[in-house]
């Protein structure tokens, strides 16, 4: 088997006294949907942030497609194929929905020192953007102003923007946060479809969704990975049940 697409080893990050990432190591092979679960404040978002480059790790190493990217700035990471969707929606609220996605396409379509040609008429930007919107089911919202969309639609738009950058690895931070039951079902279907085409690291609280979708699961508690394995392994893991799952499942019941 070839080297994994993403290889994290000994990653560490502290915020003052809080150890948010504590000697984290794991690997994601090409094609896997890897879920990252753990209680609130476990350090999941912080980990995603270090992978996408918005936070610099204190120590450890991140390798992507064989290259060391530990110190690579965020825009460059996007160019080698890492795409992130934000837990807290982060969009261009004052631009149109299509503009949002087209910008993501544009970022990966050569430089943008083009001053004269109308970018909103460039098929090379607009067509892929519409495709990404269609993929998440927002095709009919393309011309709307982004601020006018619902929360659920914002979550989908987050996803569309990540897709538009033609990523090799999708970093999805709680894509279902705040969605209603119907929207959640739709999102799970979407993720199931995406799984066929992309390698995905999925942070998610919805256990049903995680166990239905994930190839493998890592459990993060207080910044440490306490277990990694197939859904069945994790379900059976005593430590995980104690630290986390037990609570979550009773909470679900």
């Amino acid at each position: 088997m070839s080297a994994p697409l993403l290889q994290v080893s000994g990653l560490a990050k502290r915020f003052g006294g809080i150890v948010a990432t504590d000697d984290v190591s794991f690997a994601i092979p090409e094609g896997e949907l890897h879920a990252l679960i753990g209680p609130n404040g476990a350090g999941k978002t912080t980990l995603i942030a270090q992978l996408s480059g918005s936070i610099v790790a204190d120590g450890g190493r991140i390798a992507f497609a064989g290259a060391d990217i530990t110190r690579l700035p965020m825009p460059k990471r996007s160019h080698i194929g890492l795409a992130r969707s934000f837990q807290i929606t982060s969009l261009f609220l004052d631009l149109s929905v299509l503009d949002n996605v087209a910008l993501a396409v544009q970022a990966h379509a050569g430089h943008s020192f083009s001053f004269w040609r109308n970018a909103r008429a460039e098929a090379g930007l607009r067509v892929p953007a519409r495709e990404a919107l269609a993929r998440v089911g927002l095709a009919d919202r393309a011309e709307r102003s982004t601020a006018s969309l619902s929360h659920g639609e914002h979550r989908l738009l987050e996803l569309a923007m990540a897709l538009a950058s033609k990523p090799r690895l999708l970093l999805l931070d709680e894509p279902m946060a705040g969605l209603g039951p119907e929207e959640s079902v739709r999102m799970v279907e979407m993720l199931r479809a995406l799984k066929r085409d992309y390698t995905i690291l999925l942070v998610e609280h919805d256990m049903e969704a995680v166990f239905a979708l994930a190839d493998r699961i890592s459990v993060l508690v207080y910044g440490r990975i306490i277990a990694t394995g197939s859904p069945d392994d994790i379900r059976a893991n005593e430590q995980v049940r104690e630290a986390y799952l037990g609570d979550a499942e009773t909470a679900h019941a």
Partner: peptide, 12 residues
């Protein structure tokens, strides 16, 4: 509109 997001999608 959103500088952080610009960087996240690959712009400097």
């Amino acid at each position: 509109s959103n500088d952080v997001r610009m960087r996240a999608i690959g712009f400097s």
